[in-house]
Simulated assay, not measured.
Amino acid sequence: MRTLDEVDKRVIEVTRELFLQQGMQKTEMKHIAKQAGIGRSTLYRHFVSKEAISFYIAKDIIVELHEFSIEDQVTDSMKGYDKLALYLKAMAKTMMENPEKVRFLDEFDQVFTDVYPDSEEADAYVSFNNVYRSPAFSYYNEGIRDGSIQKNKESFDEIDTILMLVWGLAQRVIPREQHYIQEHNRSGAEYFQESLNLLLKPLRNTI
């Protein structure tokens, strides 16, 4: 993405606040300009649309929901599988504690259900996703090396698939927390953790 000046950074900051508070759909460029303290013509000189701004916000939130440390919970006896399980459960907890971020990413995905627009912001976002690797990958690879994880030989991107399933669960469960309590007599957090256990179970090498 391009080098951001101070106005760019201010616009992204206030847009993020608006998106997390009220969602992309309800946020208009005039709201962003007012919140940023600039005129609409100035705003449009920096960003052609709120969707263009959203790519910066989505990238940052993806990193925030992945980049946290579990090292204070890791013991010397833990193998890769145990670390991966610990990480994914911590990731689920982080998502449950930040429902507004999960809701934003869900809305972002719904906005861009077709191809991404032909724009610098979209191209940079796609490039970011092509190279970004969650810490889960290192724990997964450690588990392969130490034998605690049994790799599915028929799946080339096994851990990537698991992460996608975790994201899908988060976007389905977290916005509907109260529904799960009413419909299933258990919290979304409980449902999330049980689902994670089902995803993790086939990975463990029991030999």
Score class of each variant (00 low, 15 high):
Gly143Phe: 05
Gly143Ala: 13
Ile144Ala: 10
Ile144Pro: 05
Arg145Lys: 14
Asp146Phe: 12
Gly147Cys: 05
Ser148Gln: 12
Ile149Gly: 15
Ile149Arg: 15
Gln150Tyr: 14
Gln150Asp: 11
Gln150Gly: 13
Gln150Pro: 02
Lys151Asn: 04
Lys151Val: 15
Lys151Glu: 15
Lys153Cys: 12
Glu154Trp: 15
Ser155Pro: 00
Ser155Trp: 15
Phe156Pro: 00
Phe156Gln: 12
Glu158Asp: 02
Glu158Lys: 08
Ile159Pro: 02
Ile159Cys: 03
Asp160Ser: 14
Asp160Asn: 05
Thr161Phe: 04
Ile162Phe: 04
Leu163Tyr: 08
Met164Gln: 02
Met164Thr: 04
Leu165Glu: 09
Leu165Ala: 13
Leu165Cys: 07
Leu165Asn: 05
Leu165Val: 09
Leu165Lys: 08
Val166Trp: 07
Val166Met: 07
Trp167Val: 00
Gly168Ser: 11
Gly168Ile: 03
Leu169Ser: 07
Leu169Lys: 02
Gln171Tyr: 02
Val173Gln: 00
Ile174His: 04
Ile174Leu: 07
Ile174Tyr: 05
Arg176His: 08
Arg176Asp: 06
Glu177Ser: 06
Gln178Glu: 05
His179Leu: 12
His179Arg: 04
His179Met: 06
His179Lys: 05
Tyr180Leu: 10
Tyr180Gly: 02
Tyr180Met: 10
Tyr180Val: 01
Ile181His: 07
Ile181Arg: 11
Ile181Thr: 06
Ile181Met: 10
Gln182Thr: 05
Gln182Arg: 14
Gln182Met: 10
Glu183Phe: 07
His184Gly: 00
His184Ile: 01
His184Val: 05
His184Glu: 11
His184Pro: 00
His184Arg: 11
Arg186Glu: 12
Arg186Pro: 01
Ser187Val: 11
Gly188Gln: 11
Gly188Arg: 11
Ala189Ser: 13
Ala189Trp: 09
Ala189Leu: 06
Glu190Ser: 13
Glu190Cys: 02
Tyr191Pro: 00
Tyr191Met: 13
Phe192Ala: 01
Phe192Trp: 04
Gln193Gly: 00
Gln193Asp: 11
Glu194Thr: 06
Glu194Ile: 03
Ser195Asn: 10
